[in-house]
Amino acid sequence: MYKVIGATKSRALRVLWMLEELGQPYEHINAGARSPEALAYNPLGKIPALVDGDAVLTDSVAIMTYLADKHGRLTAPAGSVARAHQDALTFWLIDEFDAILWAAAKHSFALPEERRVPAVKDALKFEFERSAAILSDRLDGPFLMGDEITVPDILACHCLNWAIGARFPRTDDKLFHYGKALRDRPAFQAASAA
């Protein structure tokens, strides 16, 4: 059985959701960043961490990719052109969604108060809106890569949820409904309740 270390209201939700979609059992240790529990699995204290046997894996996207490859679901096959397109979208989401939201979070609460530059958040919201429009244009079906949910959908939806919580401007109707449909999935509901 897998063990997931990390608070539900963090990037650990991505891993929990992935495991629910895969139908894999797991133990969840609800721990915050830099907590004693997190430090026991990652010397940097970052969350999430995934324990699989003797292996401890870190970084939510690396963990999701590992799980998708290991179980042969929610991903295109490694070495395929479809996988290269999927990976390109995943990396784009990390750069253009996740990084923007994390920068806003740093200037809201993560950095020491004297290091925060609150004015930067307006520029980050502009960048996020521009990226959301690009993602919306790319969305041509129920999921980003076609007719089935994949790793980029979990990442994109988590970021869209994060943007809502951070009071970023609402995305267009297409992305709003896409995110709502993903949040309505039983696996998302189960992971959120973990």
Rank of each mutant, 00 (worst) to 15 (best):
L44K: 10
K46M: 03
P48N: 08
A49F: 01
A49Q: 03
A49G: 01
L50V: 13
V51P: 06
D52H: 10
D52G: 05
G53Y: 09
D54E: 14
A55D: 15
V56N: 05
L57Y: 10
D59W: 00
S60M: 01
V61C: 07
I63F: 10
M64T: 07
L67Y: 06
L67T: 04
L67A: 06
A68D: 09
D69P: 01
H71P: 11
G72C: 09
R73K: 14
R73F: 05
L74Y: 03
T75G: 07
P77A: 15
A78H: 07
G79R: 03
G79A: 05
G79L: 06
S80F: 06
V81S: 12
V81C: 08
V81W: 11
R83C: 08
A84N: 14
Q86F: 09
Q86S: 14
D87R: 14
D87P: 02
T90Y: 05
F91D: 13
F91E: 13
F91Q: 15
W92N: 04
W92G: 05
W92H: 03
W92M: 04
W92L: 05
L93S: 00
I94C: 10
D95P: 00
F97W: 09
A99S: 15
A99T: 10
L101S: 02
W102F: 12
W102Q: 09
A103V: 01
A104C: 09
A104P: 04
A105Q: 12
A105T: 13
A105L: 13
A105D: 12
K106T: 01
H107K: 00
S108H: 06
F109D: 02
A110K: 01
A110R: 03
A110D: 00
L111C: 00
L111H: 02
E113A: 12
E113S: 06
E113V: 12
E114G: 01
E114P: 00
R116S: 01
R116P: 00
V117C: 05
V117P: 00
P118L: 07
P118N: 04
P118R: 12
P118K: 11
A119G: 03
K121Q: 13
K121M: 10
A123S: 07
L124R: 04
L124M: 07
K125P: 04
F126Y: 12
E129S: 13
E129K: 08
R130C: 01
S131H: 13
S131T: 10
S131P: 06
A132W: 08
A133S: 15
A133P: 08
I134Y: 13
I134L: 15
L135G: 13
L135H: 08
L135Y: 11
D137F: 00
R138L: 09
L139D: 10
D140N: 11
D140Q: 11
P142H: 01
P142I: 00
P142N: 05
F143A: 12
M145E: 10
D147M: 05
E148K: 12
I149K: 08
I149W: 08
T150F: 04
D153G: 08
I154E: 01
C157N: 14
H158R: 07
H158Y: 14
C159I: 05
C159D: 14
C159A: 14
N161A: 12
W162Y: 14
I164M: 04
I164P: 03
G165T: 02
G165Y: 03
A166K: 06
A166D: 07
R167Y: 11
R167E: 14
